[in-house]
Computed example of a mutant assay.
Amino acid sequence: MTRNLLAPGDGLRRWWDGRSRAQKWGFGLVAFGVLAMLPLFPPPFLNTPNISFGGTMAQFAMVAIIAIGLNVVVGQAGLLDLGYVGFYAVGAYTVALLTSPNSPWNRLGATGWFTEDWAWLACVPLAMAITALTGLILGTPTLRLRGDYLAIVTLGFGEIIRLMADNLSDITNGPRGLNEVAYPRLGESERLPEGVFSSGNSSGLANYGTWWFWLGIVLIIAILMLVGNLERSRVGRAWIAIREDEDAAEVMGVNTFKFKLWAFVIGAAIGGLSGALYAGQVQFVAPPTFNIINSMLFLCAVVLGGQGNKLGVVVGAFVIVYLPNRLLGVEFLGINLGDLKYLFFGMALVALMIFRPQGLFPARQQLLTYGRAARDLLRNPEKEAVK
């Protein structure tokens, strides 16, 4: 009898699928707890010697949020979006335009929620709402397209947003960007007069990158809960049907346009949240950050992790962020390996498409309604019949 060989990720995925919902929650909380402690006690083999490990993990949290949002669009609904960086830019510029002193729309210092202490927090739901509205405006006329045509339209959208930010100098300050963007004012003290989230908190056990990472972890958990509930709902089942065969789904009565628009708007809102997180952390927003290369890297995180697997794309985001930072400053034959990140990602994608086209942790679709009861019935039909 031959024994099936498990590819990387299959054994872990099968073990995870066999756990109950309560067990998954328990293991998940422990895993996220350990992950949260990594910046405080980084293992030597995992540490980034030439750059702050806390800053690297903060960047990972932002990209993970983007990857989860893009996975809703690409992995679950099957919509090829090459311009997702445009939503990231809209979220970042919403915060920057409302809080930067270089912006004519600056509301910092106003009464109410736009006082200095609360400005960033007030801008986060605004950034998500405006980005979701942008997704609605873009998706309404374009989601009747499919495949390559939709990919080209979304690619154009991402470039249009970047070019608008670059050329509307009177509003966005053009290529010079917007600086002194608001951030959370928390933990102000004599040693840290601007709080733990400020760039002045660059020393000590928990620097500002670590605090931004912790905030990102909380947001990731909340988004995973939201997306997980959607997966198990009628909306999630409609997305899977559309991804597998849109024509068949439409024949069976699924309103494909409505559910595709749902995915687009939800994914856009999550991208806007990550953009708001980026603007607050870096406190500077400029057009070059939102180029097409970054959009491809976000898509690369989804493909590497496994399209449709919300936890897998988090792993893909970690690979995308960690690898270049780990190789930063490492030289081989006089070549800085950190400068070759695109070569490494390209080689990884080629190898993945040959040996593992579904990604490292491919999604295993189950019966979403009464799935566990159905599996138990198939495993023990006689026992269930006696009941």
Rank of each mutant, 00 (worst) to 15 (best):
S202V: 13
F157G: 01
G305T: 04
L145R: 05
L35H: 03
A286W: 03
M128H: 08
A385D: 15
K260L: 05
I152P: 08
G109R: 08
G18D: 14
L98E: 03
A122C: 01
V30T: 11
N255P: 02
S103D: 08
A92Q: 03
K341R: 14
G329D: 06
G11N: 08
Y208Q: 13
G109D: 05
F41W: 15
F32C: 07
A241L: 01
G26K: 07
I160T: 10
W118S: 14
V74P: 00
V265W: 04
R144T: 02
P49I: 10
L328E: 05
V254E: 11
L108H: 09
F53E: 01
D117A: 15
R232W: 09
R185L: 14
P101S: 04
L70T: 12
P43I: 12
V350W: 07
P141Y: 03
M353V: 15
G338P: 03
I65K: 00
G338Y: 07
A249H: 03
V315I: 15
P44R: 13
R356N: 11
L38R: 08
V251H: 02
L5Y: 12
R379F: 05
L205N: 02
A241V: 00
L277A: 10
G109A: 11
L163Y: 11
G371K: 05
T289S: 10
A61F: 09
Q366W: 01
G306W: 05
G55A: 13
L219N: 06
R107N: 07
T154H: 01
P44G: 15
E244Q: 14
R107D: 00
L38C: 13
F114R: 11
L327C: 02
T56H: 06
Q358K: 12
A301M: 12
S203E: 13
N325I: 01
G91N: 06
A58K: 10
I292P: 00
F344V: 12
F87Y: 12
L352D: 04
L343S: 14
A89T: 08
V330S: 10
V30E: 01
L46M: 13
V34Y: 09
W239C: 03
P8M: 10
L230D: 00
L121T: 12
T111C: 04
Q59N: 14
F332W: 14
L35Y: 07
E180Y: 02
G195N: 13
Q365G: 05
G329K: 07
F264C: 12
A268W: 08
G280M: 09
W262A: 15
L186E: 00
A301T: 08
G316F: 03
V282L: 14
W113S: 13
P101I: 00
A36Q: 09
R191Q: 13
R21E: 10
N336G: 12
F298N: 10
I354N: 06
L304G: 05
I242S: 04
G158T: 10
G9T: 09
L178I: 11
L226M: 15
L226R: 02
V285A: 07
